[in-house]
Nucleic acid binder design. Structure first.
Lengths: 132, 132
DNA sequence: CTTGACCTTCCCGCACACTGGAACCCTTAG
DNA sequence: CTAAGGGTTCCAGTGTGCGGGAAGGTCAAG
């Protein structure tokens, strides 16, 4: 399978496929007589895996770690579970921070709508933000 | 005030101050006889403003927009309110997406802990991720 | 024989907000 | 005189995941 077909069937750009190959995320495909990459069907499953892993926020580096375990003949379950858990914790923490941020923003907007611009202190950039 | 003192008093690195000057975020300070930057006190208020604006997630580009309005002698309240509202909407949307992601992650972790590695399909990178 | 659609490698650029380092100047103290 | 501790400019790199485009080889159809 040429790279263009892989791209069409997987939805992953040819450029990206070469990039994934460069960073060791997918197997180096064999080449045909003209030097064209000749992918096997299995790359599609691998790309589906990568897509799912990306979708839950794993980085390409983390995914490469999983793939490397798999290529070593090991079952990466434990490692994957660990990654999923730490990713879940990260997401939780991010949500927490964003909620705080949202509360701050809401407070600022609340102040903003009930404020008379005439009260502005010309020495400050903007009364709405600045000194807490 | 030399750049080092501004850095100490504001907590913003000297490098960052030069960068802010480069991108037009803070006023170009005058120079002393040796070519050293000579900042006025007002830069501290400006940096406090920038810090607050960064804290609610505004980009340096957006902040520059506010500062530019202020430097034009305009009251940036309305513009700031608009930015705060659209930022609040962004944060909300991000939280929503992260909550979905978290649910996905929790589901995957749930599956992972109740899974027997012996059931692995060797053709797949990992049963936990891959085909949905 | 030419056209057009493929493929190849290689290098640069982006977004964002800095940060590091080199090479050099100025000032003050010992 | 020298060393320490400021300051200056400019260039380049960080992380992340690609995308653009040049310059060229290959292949099938018309």
């Amino acid at each position: 399978m040429l790279i263009g077909e892989v791209a069409r069937r997987s939805g992953v750009a040819a450029k990206t496929l070469r990039y994934y190959e460069d960073i060791g995320l997918i197997e180096r495909p064999s080449r045909d007589a003209s030097g064209y990459r000749d992918f096997g069907e299995s790359v599609l499953g691998c790309l589906a895996f990568i897509r799912s892993a990306r979708a839950v926020g794993l980085t390409l580096g983390e995914i490469r770690g999983i793939v490397a375990l798999h290529d070593d003949g090991k079952v990466p379950c434990g490692h994957v579970l660990e990654l999923l858990r730490s990713r879940a914790a990260e997401v939780d923490e991010t949500i927490r921070q964003l909620r705080e941020l949202k509360a701050d923003l809401d407070r600022l907007v609340e102040q903003a709508v009930t404020f008379d611009p005439a009260d502005c202190d010309p020495d400050r950039i903007c009364h709405l933000l600045g000194r807490p």
